[in-house]
Amino acid sequence: MTVNLGKDLTGLEHLTPEQIRLILDTAEPFKEVSERPIKKVPALRGKTIVNLFFEASTRTRISFEFAEKRLSADTVNVAATGSSVSKGETLVDTAKNLEAMRIDMVVIRHPSSGAAGFLGQRIRSNVINAGDGKHEHPTQALLDLLTIRDKHGKIAGLKVCLVGDVLHSRVARSNIWGLTKLGAQVAVCGPYTLMPRGIEELGVQFFPRIEEAIEWADVLNILRLQLERMEKGFIPSLREYYRVWGVTPERLERSPRAITIMHPGPMNRGVEIDSRVADGPHSVILDQVTNGVAVRMAVLYLLAGGRPELADAAKRGGGAE
């Protein structure tokens, strides 16, 4: 059976292990494209992609933009501030207006959970979720999977622990789906106040102390403390957090293994991660960033024109339905 991705990528929850592997395998040749003297292939020539960012983003937006440009797509960036969104236009109206200008794909980041799926059901263009509220951030999890596979040669059987602010983290949710589907053992570790209720139902272990997580794990994916999403009272203070939960060389030394260190960025150095760990020999944090472009190229390539009936319908000037 041939594997296909369908129209949108809204999350990893509903993808099969084969679909996830297809994306990772397709990302491999795209790594090489970024090493060429001319970092560009014509695969998406003539496609128009809108990056619709309703939330601040540097890394993800630039990574998507590089991916789009290296595939020769034409891109437009729309930020919520300074656009008609700040005049009260609804998400669907914004997207429908963009579609009226004949676009092919929308990359969306939005503060509301489920926004990408909601939009995908209402417009004809392919929709890619670049992070929606506390729901999912699928391309981040995919680049994490690719980086783990690069470093360890496999994912199945590895012990991966997500550390810190799991409650506010869409990265954690997407990672849990992706890792468990590919056969990794997954754990979470962090203060009770930053753990979502019922997290064990996703098939993950919970470690109440960072020392236990370090003793157990092959890989630590250290999440950013999302201060902007927090009201008061989740943690006593940043210094207190570092003292109890910070990943430090002293703590890592106790592990018999060389633990791979990951962080989705942007890092709060000296809060969730010590600088000596972030810049240490087992850190793959910058490899994650490099792989991000390749993974996003793979997703764009696989979604574009992936449904011939849609392409035909678009040529006739109508919708697929």
Binding site: D25, P29, F30, P42, A43, Y301, G305, P308, A311
Partner: peptide, 23 residues
């Protein structure tokens, strides 16, 4: 050389062909 990304029929092929190594 893998020429998949330079094909002129990506719109019409259903499932995407596996891309080989270019070196």
């Amino acid at each position: 050389l893998d020429i998949t990304l330079y094909r002129d029929d990506l719109e019409t092929v259903g499932p995407k062909p596996v891309i080989g190594e270019t070196r």
